[in-house]
Design a protein around this nucleic acid. Structure first.
Lengths: 232, 232
DNA sequence: TATTATTGTTACAAAATGAGACAATAATGA
DNA sequence: TCATTATTGTCTCATTTTGTAACAATAATA
């Protein structure tokens, strides 16, 4: 990763959201030998669209293409300029900066995106500077570097608006799911319980769902229908 | 404006919205001797928060402080890299770039903000490269450079969500206004007519308005009440 | 003093939502 | 085989919100 290939001062961070075991989860990276945790991020090549750079990073970290991705905020306060953190990370990776300067030690402004992906299809893959890349439940995140906690918070706030459309375009759920599973995803994103019957009526009235065969779980009760999102 | 003072590759653009004569208006700059129109924008100093940079620019262009300002998107496609446009502007201003390089000719990623300001308090002031800075009705904009048309469009889309809160925090209207004036602002932002009685009922039920004395316009009909936004 | 335009409020209908009731299952186990 | 249990899909009724229109109350004017 050479300085000349990338736009200086510009980074991106991604809040990669998946869903499993009834919980919303985020992909978090840990840097080698530092105990520091961060959102997966990266930099923009000179000859590359901003959004393409983010998709490239997502592909590297998750193996996934064609992901639902939305930009939600750009973080540019001076307070996020803490070169000693990046210096620690570089040193821990054997990249002792020559003299006192390295382009990664400059001030960066970060454009933040969130992605809704299918947990089961992902193979978390750390990058060159990190030794792990794994899922954390949204309410059990480790302490994150810089303003990454704030970035996560803002991602969730954004996600809560127009949730119907976003869930429909994203991939948090498998292709077919029950109404109950859908409701649990809503609840974990909104952080509040919903009334079953009202939820079912509202979802059906949106006309975004297609009903399929029943799903026999082996449990001792009526089998629920499976649904999928229309045109996806 | 020297290269060393600013973060390279990072710019901001502002969609400055005002309201007068029943129309929503935008502040647009025209560059000297080029016939090119653009949103007021600028750059971020090395020692400056991103948002402070935008407020500094707003202060220079409008004379106003403490403005309602919200970031809504960051534009980073490669297609917006058109150095010949900036070269034309520089040359028209007598800044013939030495040799072939000038930092303003590099690729820029732009963070876009919109502001809701009080039209009557503004003294539009062009910057060093422009010869005019004036108001245009939202539906009568001149052709803008780069992706600035798209930026305006996205600003309006964003503004339409949670409009109540934004209007209340912004300053499109004078401190006291009639229900009719408020309705016209809504209509010009939403681009659609609203029903008078429903609008009045909804506004009052939000409990955001405070009712004051009547306003006698001299017209031959019942005088409307004046309102203000609570706690502002 | 009647006329005109516009306003604030009320009244009623229509639509959306809240809250609960209830019948219809799948499996289980007596 | 048949009652039991947990959960689902749907229906009902009350409540709230919104759409639509009506109407009385003005300010100025002629």
């Amino acid at each position: 990763m050479k300085a000349a290939d990338y736009l200086p001062h510009i980074a991106y961070d991604s809040v990669i959201l998946g869903y499993s075991d009834g919980e919303l989860k985020i992909l978090i990276m840990e840097y080698h030998n530092t105990g520091m945790f961060a959102l997966p991020g990266g930099f923009v090549k000179i000859q590359e669209d901003l959004e393409d750079a983010v998709r490239r990073g997502l592909k590297e970290r998750t193996g996934l293409d064609h992901i639902f991705l939305e930009q939600f905020h750009t973080f540019g306060s001076r307070a996020r300029y803490q070169p000693e953190i990046m210096r620690t990370i570089l040193i821990a990776n054997g990249h002792e900066p020559d003299g006192d300067y390295h382009w990664l030690l400059d001030r960066f402004i970060s454009v933040a995106y969130y992605a809704l992906i299918n947990y089961t299809e992902v193979v978390p893959t750390p990058d060159a500077l990190s030794d792990s890349c794994r899922w954390y439940a949204i309410d059990k995140l480790p302490a994150l570097i810089l303003d990454h906690q704030e970035i996560v918070k803002k991602a969730l706030q954004t996600l809560r608006d127009n949730l119907d459309r976003k869930l429909m375009s994203g991939n948090l759920l498998p292709p077919r799911f029950t109404m109950n599973e859908l409701q649990r995803v809503y609840e974990s994103i909104l952080g509040a319980p919903l009334r079953r019957t009202s939820f079912q009526r509202r979802m059906l009235s949106l006309e975004l769902l297609e009903r399929h065969e029943k799903h026999y779980s082996g449990k001792a009760h009526k089998a629920p229908y499976l649904y999928s999102f229309k045109n996806s």
